[in-house]
Amino acid sequence: MTTPTRIAVVDDQEVIRAGFGTLLGTQPDFVVAGTAADGSEAVRLCRDQALDVVLMDVRMPVLDGIEATRRIVTDSGPTAGPRILMLTTFDLDEHVYDALAAGASGFLLKDVTAERLFDAVRVIASGGGLLAPTVTRRLIAEFARRRPAGDPAVSLGHLTPREIEVLRLIAGGLSKPEIATRLVVSDETVKTHVSRLLGKLGARDRTQAVIAAYESGLVVPGASHDR
C-alpha cells in the first residue's frame, strides 16, 4: 500500500486553512498532518512532524512565508525535508523570486480548483516543480534584474556534458518526455540524468535546478532558447 502524502496548510486566515484542509482530506492518498497560522508556527510544525508537502501563504504576521521557507529548508537541508508550495492571491506576486530562492518548489493561486490543487500537491510530492508560465516569466525577469556581474553564483563544473545539456533543456521548460525525444533516449535515461544532476547541485527538485541554471550563467535571461 502506498504511503499517504503528509501535508500541512499554513495561512493566517482560518477559513483558508479549513477549506484547503477539508479538500485535501477527501483524497485517499493525502493526510493533513497539521495547520499553522503563521510562519513561526510552520517552522515548529515542520520540526515536530514528518511532512512531505507544506502549503505556505506568502504574507503572514509574526513570520512571513518566505522566511519560514528559508528556515525550514535550512533545518532540513537542501535535498531533504518537506517540499514548499507557496499560496498567493496573484500569479505575479512581487515575492516570487525571493520565495523560490528561499527553497520553494512552486506557486499556487488561492482560487485554484480542487483538481488543480490535488494535482499540484502530487507533482510537488514526487519531486517536480510547479511554475505557471506567468510565474516563470516573472522569475526570469527577476534574474535579469538582480543577477550581479562577475563570477557566477553556482558552478556546474562537476556535471557531465550530458547532464549540462539536460539541465539546459529543463531550464527551457521541457518535460522529461520532451527531453527524451530531443536527445533520442528513453524516459528512464532522462530520469536518471535528472536525478544525478539534482544530487550534484544539491537541488530538491526541477524548480531549484532551473534557479541553478540561471545562477551559473548556463542560461541567460532574455536570450532565445531553442525548444
Rank of each mutant, 00 (worst) to 15 (best):
L45N: 08
R47C: 09
R47D: 13
Q49F: 01
A50W: 04
L51N: 05
D52I: 00
V53T: 10
L55T: 11
M56N: 09
M56S: 06
M56K: 05
D57N: 08
D57V: 02
V58H: 01
V58W: 08
M60H: 01
M60W: 07
M60P: 10
M60G: 10
M60Q: 04
P61Q: 11
V62H: 11
L63W: 02
I66R: 06
E67G: 03
A68C: 01
A68H: 07
R70A: 15
I72R: 04
I72S: 07
I72N: 00
I72Y: 03
T74Q: 13
D75Y: 08
D75R: 07
D75V: 01
G77L: 03
G77H: 11
P78I: 00
P78W: 03
P78T: 14
P78A: 15
T79I: 15
T79G: 07
A80Y: 12
A80D: 15
P82K: 05
P82V: 07
R83H: 15
R83F: 10
I84G: 06
I84P: 03
I84W: 02
L85A: 08
L85I: 02
L85K: 08
L85C: 08
M86Q: 12
M86L: 10
T88S: 14
D91N: 15
D91R: 00
L92H: 13
L92F: 01
D93A: 12
V96L: 13
Y97V: 03
Y97G: 06
L100D: 09
L100V: 08
A101N: 12
A102T: 06
A102I: 01
G103Y: 04
A104M: 02
S105I: 00
F107Y: 15
L108H: 09
L109N: 09
K110R: 13
K110Q: 10
K110C: 09
D111P: 07
D111I: 05
D111V: 02
V112C: 11
V112G: 00
A114I: 11
E115Y: 08
E115R: 13
L117S: 08
L117P: 01
F118M: 07
A120K: 05
A120V: 03
A120G: 04
V121C: 09
R122T: 06
R122I: 06
V123A: 12
V123I: 15
I124W: 10
I124S: 12
A125L: 05
S126L: 09
S126K: 14
S126W: 03
G127F: 03
G129A: 06
L130V: 12
L130I: 08
L131I: 06
A132L: 15
A132W: 01
P133Y: 13
R137P: 03
R137I: 00
L139R: 06
A141G: 15
E142M: 10
R145P: 02
R146W: 00
R147S: 14
R147E: 13
R147K: 14
A149S: 14
A149H: 12
